[in-house]
């Protein structure tokens, strides 16, 4: 009984600041490939921490324990990492500008539509998760299926093309508005619906 009275009421956990660029504790930014950006972010957001970590004194103290050789190797490694990160970023930007999300309205039967969405994975979205969100948002059937050309599509019951575009625009701003294509897909009589 007495124990419960002693238990801490105030939260006891520490609050740790993480880097807004690379997500690590800022003292570890030096090991990532985005050091420059990390430094800028830290200086803007946590001035005091920036001083503590990146002042000349701090840097000298941090590297003094390493041998000259080890320091050189670490520098080389850091440089390689930075180049790699830059290349990855450039590639990512290129993929984004070149990729399209297709929202297709497909007539299944007379006046019965389904909406197909493809291309989300190029923007780092997960079809399964987004399909679930569509289902919830539009209170309708929504599932992921494989397409013959390889890859996946989300099939949503009903004609919700515009609503889907709106929803995605609002929720996932990694996809620029220009990268959406709304397509109408009419099935000829007699042809099998795909």
């Amino acid at each position: 009984m007495a124990d419960t009275a002693e238990s801490p009421a105030e939260p006891q956990s520490r609050h740790v600041t993480y880097c807004g660029v690379c997500s690590l504790p800022p003292e570890y930014c030096e090991f990532g490939g985005t050091v420059k950006k990390c430094q800028e972010w830290l200086q803007r957001n946590h001035d005091d921490m920036y001083e503590r970590l990146w002042s000349a004194d701090a840097l000298a103290a941090a590297t003094s324990s390493l041998s000259v050789d080890a320091r050189k190797r670490a520098e080389k490694d850091a440089h390689k990492k930075a180049l790699k990160a830059e290349a990855a970023e450039a590639k990512h930007a290129q993929t984004i500008s070149a990729s399209k999300v297709y929202i297709k309205r497909i007539e299944r039967n007379k006046r019965k539509y389904v909406t197909s969405v493809t291309g989300l994975e190029a923007f780092g979205l997960e079809n399964k998760k987004v399909a679930k969100e569509f289902g919830k948002k539009f209170a309708t059937g929504s599932s992921v299926s494989k397409v013959p050309s390889g890859g996946e599509e989300i099939v949503v019951q009903g004609d919700v093309s515009e609503e889907i575009e709106e929803f995605l625009l609002e929720k996932y701003d990694v996809i620029p508005e220009d990268n959406y294509e709304l397509v109408e897909h009419k099935v000829k009589k007699g042809a099998s619906a795909t």
Partner: peptide
């Protein structure tokens, strides 16, 4: 990070 003193630990060099 929230409760650093509550876990057994070792330390690596830089």
């Amino acid at each position: 990070h929230r409760f650093p003193t509550c876990f057994p630990s070792i330390r690596i060099d830089r």
